[in-house]
Write a protein that binds this DNA or RNA. Sequence first.
DNA 1: ATCATTAGATACGCAAGTCTATCTAATGTG
DNA 2: CACATTAGATAGACTTGCGTATCTAATGAT
Lengths: 189, 189
Amino acid sequence: MPERRRGAALEQALLDAAWDELTAGGYTRFTMDAVVKRAGTSPPVLYRRWSDREDLVRATLVHVLRKNVLKVPDTGSLREDVLTLMREINATRVQLVTVMSVYLASYHLETGTSPAELLDPADTDRKQAVDAIFDRAVARGEAESERLTDRIKALPFDLLRQEILTTYAPAPDRVLEEIVDTIFLPLLR
Amino acid sequence: MPERRRGAALEQALLDAAWDELTAGGYTRFTMDAVVKRAGTSPPVLYRRWSDREDLVRATLVHVLRKNVLKVPDTGSLREDVLTLMREINATRVQLVTVMSVYLASYHLETGTSPAELLDPADTDRKQAVDAIFDRAVARGEAESERLTDRIKALPFDLLRQEILTTYAPAPDRVLEEIVDTIFLPLLR
DNA sequence: ATCATTAGATACGCAAGTCTATCTAATGTG
DNA sequence: CACATTAGATAGACTTGCGTATCTAATGAT
């Protein structure tokens, strides 16, 4: 019976349980009781750390966003770099994108604002990853920097997100290639 | 005090109240009581028509989707047709897109499926509107039909939706033009 | 070994929301 | 004008989930 988790280890376990609960049942069915049960612990353990449901949801999202940092690929070609990054997003972030879309839109409908503390770090992160790729592409002469507007740099990733948000599943690889080869790359020449 | 609404008129009023409630507080705060209050009526009136919360939400979305049918523009130029349609979406559908994104993703997280009865009619509708525009553009020789893949036809609208879903506000007109002039149209030539 | 800390169990009070049962009075129809 | 319908008010039973209070026992530090 013993083997009690403590401190940081316990906290991770709680946040993981909360995340599983979020992805399994969604925002509406997310209850403190369910998290407690899934984590195999009891209410006070949860409430000692997060004062209420909202607090726990935010902490869970931050936790997951921090854990899921994208590796920036460096394959030597822009096409492969972009595809590799898209494949990684595709493989690891379908649920994150889905849950975030619910959370962000709900948050906006309820408060009229957006949760900056969540968005800013994640955005900064993604921009840096993407910029690194494009800087190298420009250095190699694969793209002219004047063509690379922010909107075009974001384009393949926006389209992938769109794809995920209409199917709630990873996009087939041929879709990724279609996006890159028939939309993104042609715009750079 | 009299002046009682009845039948269809009452039903419209209830659905309108439900919609206002959805956009004002979001999916989570959407309660039968709030709808009843906003509509200025009482619980049995609601329950006589829709058996529960879920039922009412779905009916409300169907109601709003039916009311908001896009006019298909015919300005004589592809650029203006697309921009006009985007402007109309931009002006009338920010809240609809926001609420639908929450509903669809929540629905998926909770059930693992998508509510076909909502998506199919709306999709069919939009495809017909968009296809009409492109058929005329091809007839005028403004675009080659082989370049007009489904993905490219959907592109400006996907990007607009993306824009709406990151700001929860109408996109500035210059963004619409940027999308059309620097991304969409160049892909047709 | 002792002790402070904190995990974990149990139970409960409270608030909010759902849905129903039971009236009454307004409304349109024949 | 009489009657069938149905809107609308009120009250309540029931459920669910939140958050807390009160224990006990495990754990690590000194």
